[in-house]
């Protein structure tokens, strides 16, 4: 049997089989599948807030750098001594304010993340 004969033989069989294929009406099949699916997740439409905006990240980074600078310039023990030096009180107060700001911003971000 040559290739053409083989093709013709396959051809008639293929055509005959495709002619015989009957369509199965849906008759509620799709509904039964849909009923088996797990409940749809409720998804937030907006960008998730937990990641924070870029503006918040810049403020956080600046506050962190400021707090680190204060910590380096005024290590713990000298800091206690400085409390008595009235001339440096504004500097200490500034550093403390920056550190407090950084802590506050961090707590806000943590709250949103949770």
């Amino acid at each position: 049997m040559n290739q053409d004969d083989l093709m013709n033989e396959n051809d008639w069989l293929e055509k005959a089989l495709q002619r015989q294929e009957r369509y199965i009406a849906d008759d509620g099949f799709t509904d039964s599948v849909m009923a088996c699916l797990p409940a749809a997740e409720t998804r937030s439409v907006s960008v998730p807030e937990s990641t924070g905006s870029s503006h918040e990240w810049i403020v956080m980074a600046a506050a962190g750098i400021a707090a680190a600078t204060v910590a380096v310039c005024f290590p713990l023990m000298p800091f206690i001594d400085l409390i008595t030096v009235s001339a440096r009180i504004p500097v200490i107060a500034g550093g403390a304010a920056v550190a407090a700001g950084a802590l506050f911003a961090a707590s806000q971000m943590m709250r949103r993340a949770l």
Partner: peptide, 21 residues
């Protein structure tokens, strides 16, 4: 992207006959 149930139902309807066959 949106877990769109209507879109999935269209896919099921489209293929149900041949898969069941």
């Amino acid at each position: 992207k949106h877990d769109n149930r209507h879109a999935f139902a269209v896919l099921v309807r489209r293929y149900q006959s041949e898969i069941r066959n």
